[in-house]
Design a binder for these strands. Structure first.
Length: 550
DNA sequence: CGAACTTGCGCC
DNA sequence: AAAGGGCGCAAGTTCG
């Protein structure tokens, strides 16, 4: 049964059961009503935006089973149709780094707090009634999906994206178990006691002093890269920047304390005491996930840098007493995705192995795993430097279909065309500024134009792999979430990072959860790629501490 | 004075 | 050993 619900504020809403005539239902208490309704029957909820509705439902103890998120669906469809209104992240970042004008703001889709719901670009008059408008938007989306070459794939993508939004809200609600005492102890060990506001930790002060001493006692601000470059220049050492990997190549007494300073300062600034104050409460880290926040379908986060947790801090992530953390990581997801996308049979054979790079090396690189990996990454990222060229040639000779797949995607980007993931997630078209740049016949501009074309080609080359990997991971997450609600209802999905998921569950449920994780991976593979011979191992480790996984 | 930009580094 | 793709965040500096 499909039920469309439009919240109206203060916990009230109006709803309509689709395919059933009758007046709209006035709901005084959304959470109670939805909970009761889905206890009675398997409902697919049609809602304007899960991220706005779910927090209140969760606070009332209600988890939705399935939904169609109209806003997320609209974002996917607009991108598919090459119309404006998508998330703007990549386009904006690309433009910023190249001094190009940024794309226009995303248009409002369906915002319940706005009285006038409307469909951008559609020419239809805004419906006076939000519930009628939502019904019309849904019908319109279904029509647009049906008109595509693979409606089943887009339906799966939208279902997975919507389920992802439910899971994301739940992850924020549950939080990732976080031991403040362990984190604090780590900080004190590495940085010294917490400094008073405005002051720098003792260990950082010591290092700053050692850096200055190494430059003849002249004070250096280690947080200011240009002054570091100048200080080395005074010693007769020319470096292009003060980046860590550049410094590693330099022989000078200041290098060791500088590298140590960078590392510790990063910890202090990004994940120090103030991070703990802001983001951890009651032993839980609660980041806000932004589903659909990355054009490739990966998630982003708002605040807390949840997807960039340094490995050293994983030691602070501990299961509650009597509970366990099931940590599952899809190993080498992206090369496997390329294998499945391209249908390269020989590559599929290589993917049968648990360590894909080792078997790839055995097959084509004289057992040299390192070179096999570089070749693979160069194919997926468009690497050009150093060994990449010859290694890619080896890969191409042995796996022509796999390499051809990414090279066609690169060509599409260079020519300004969009590319799509397996399920239909679509890359943004290049900006008008890009088109101008790449079509400028002027001699001097031509070089820049070619460079811009190559850069966009690298983006689309990577997009087909990264976005299809996100298709798989999201489908796996959605599948896992559904499975756990029946087989291990106490289990909580508490973390999801591109190709990795963490479930926090009672120890007694660990075996069931492990089995569901592995089956969710198989099911996702079948849903997304059909009967591909490529294997996608997703193995869960039951640990007490996140740092002990892998 | 704040906004915008640059630099650098954490994760996948 | 570094470099190719995608992000978020914070510090320092410059711009308006």
């Amino acid at each position: 049964m499909r039920v469309i619900v439009v919240p109206e504020g203060e916990g009230t809403a109006r709803a309509r059961v689709l395919d059933e005539p009758g007046a709209p239902i006035a709901i005084p208490d959304v959470a109670a009503w939805m909970a009761e309704r889905q206890r009675e029957t398997d409902v697919r909820w049609i809602i304007p935006a899960a991220d706005e509705l779910c927090p209140a439902l969760l606070a009332a103890g209600v988890r939705l089973g399935r939904c169609h998120d109209l806003s997320l669906a609209e974002g996917i469809l607009l991108a598919f149709e090459e119309r404006p209104g998508r998330p703007r992240n990549l386009g904006a970042a690309y433009a910023r780094t190249r001094g190009l004008p940024e794309p226009a703001d995303p248009r409002p889709l369906i915002r319940t707090e706005q009285p006038a719901l409307f469909e951008p670009d559609r020419g239809t008059a805004p419906a006076a009634d939000p519930l009628d408008a939502a019904v019309a938007v849904l019908a319109d989306q279904e029509r647009r999906i049906a008109n595509t070459a693979h409606p089943d794939r887009l339906r799966l993508l939208i279902a997975a994206e919507s389920a992802g939004a439910l899971a994301a809200a739940e992850m924020t609600y549950y939080g990732l178990p976080w031991r403040v005492d362990i984190h604090t102890e780590l900080l004190t060990d590495l940085l010294g006691p917490r400094p008073s506001p405005g002051a720098r930790p003792a260990k950082l002060n010591d290092l700053a002093e050692r850096i200055s001493d190494a430059f003849s006692g002249r004070p250096i601000n280690p947080d200011h890269p240009p002054s570091i470059v100048r200080a080395f220049a005074r010693e007769g050492i020319e470096i292009p920047s003060a980046r860590a990997w550049v410094l590693k190549e330099v022989e000078h007494p200041a290098v060791e304390p500088l590298l140590a300073y960078k590392e510790l300062s990063r910890l202090y600034v990004a994940h120090g005491w103030s991070w703990l104050d802001s983001w951890v409460d009651n032993g839980r880290f609660r980041p806000e996930y932004v589903v659909g926040g990355v054009v490739s379908g990966r998630w982003a986060t708002r605040g807390g840098a949840a997807l960039q947790l340094p490995r050293t801090l994983r030691t602070a992530v501990r299961a509650d007493p009597g509970w366990t953390l099931m940590v599952a990581d899809a190993s080498q997801l992206e090369p496997r995705v390329l294998g499945a996308l391209s249908g390269d049979r020989r590559f599929a054979e290589v993917s049968a192995s648990e360590d894909l790079y080792t078997s790839l090396a055995a097959d084509a690189f004289d057992g040299d795993r390192g070179r096999a990996k570089i070749a693979m990454l160069s194919a997926m990222y468009g690497g050009t430097s150093g060994e990449a060229g010859p290694l890619l040639a080896v890969l191409r000779k042995r796996f022509p279909h796999a390499v051809d797949y990414v090279e066609q995607a690169a060509r599409a980007g260079e020519e300004g065309r969009v590319v799509r993931s397996r399920l239909g997630r679509t890359s943004p078209p290049p900006s008008d500024a890009w088109r101008e740049l790449t079509s400028d016949p002027d001699e001097t501009a031509e070089r820049r134009g070619r460079q811009a074309a190559r850069e966009w080609g690298r983006f689309t080359r990577n997009f087909v792999v990264q976005a299809s990997a996100a298709d798989w991971a999201l489908t796996m997450l959605a599948t896992l979430r559904r499975r756990l609600t029946t087989s291990a209802p106490e289990a909580e999905i508490v973390f999801f990072q591109h190709d990795e998921v963490i479930v926090h569950c009672p120890q007694a449920a660990a075996d069931v959860v492990a089995k569901e994780i592995s089956e969710a991976a198989d099911q996702a593979t079948a849903l997304v790629f059909g009967d591909t011979p490529v294997r996608f191992p997703l193995i869960a480790a039951a640990v007490d501490c996140y740092a002990d996984a892998k």
